[in-house]
């Protein structure tokens, strides 16, 4: 399965991935409309310490702990892709506790959100990867 991998050597900590992600999942076609003067809720987050930085999002683990921990059965695995059904999410934060990567976070509405590789939004392919200026995140089969 194709996943997003990090080449931290090339991450510039520009945070563009975060903005592209928030835009991609906004449901809007215009980035300005989607993001201007609004709080940012990206599903990818840049971690930085000193000169080292990299972007973290869901790893789409083959044995996902979040799925096991979810008390509402909101998280499921389809062909390797881990998706969350926000209608079922009760906002208990169990998945956040369970994910070793911190890849889940509350959305604007309070229920959880996570990276679904842009497979469930209108873009189809990871927009963060397309927006990264230095190939610090790549979407590939390994």
């Amino acid at each position: 399965m194709k996943r997003i991998y990090v080449n931290e050597q090339w991450c510039l900590a520009c945070h563009l991935c975060e903005y592209y992600c928030a835009y991609a999942n906004s449901g809007l076609l215009d980035m300005v409309q989607a993001l201007k003067d609004k709080p940012l809720h990206p599903r990818i987050q840049v971690e930085q310490k000193g000169t080292v930085s990299f972007a973290v999002n869901c790893r789409h683990c083959s044995e996902p702990l979040c799925l096991k921990s979810c008390i509402a059965g909101a998280i499921s695995q389809k062909d390797g892709l881990i998706v969350i059904d926000q209608d079922k999410c009760v906002g208990c934060y169990s998945c956040i506790m369970a994910c070793p990567y911190g890849a889940l976070m509350p959305s604007e509405s309070g229920v959880m959100q996570k990276c679904e590789l842009c497979a469930t939004n209108s873009h189809g392919l990871p927009v963060c990867v397309q927006g990264c200026p230095n190939q610090a995140i790549v979407y590939e089969e390994r």
Binding site: C14, L16, K36
Partner: peptide
Amino acid sequence: QDRCITCRVCERQ
């Protein structure tokens, strides 16, 4: 300013 989303990428780069 109508387009700027204050992402601060310019500042960082």
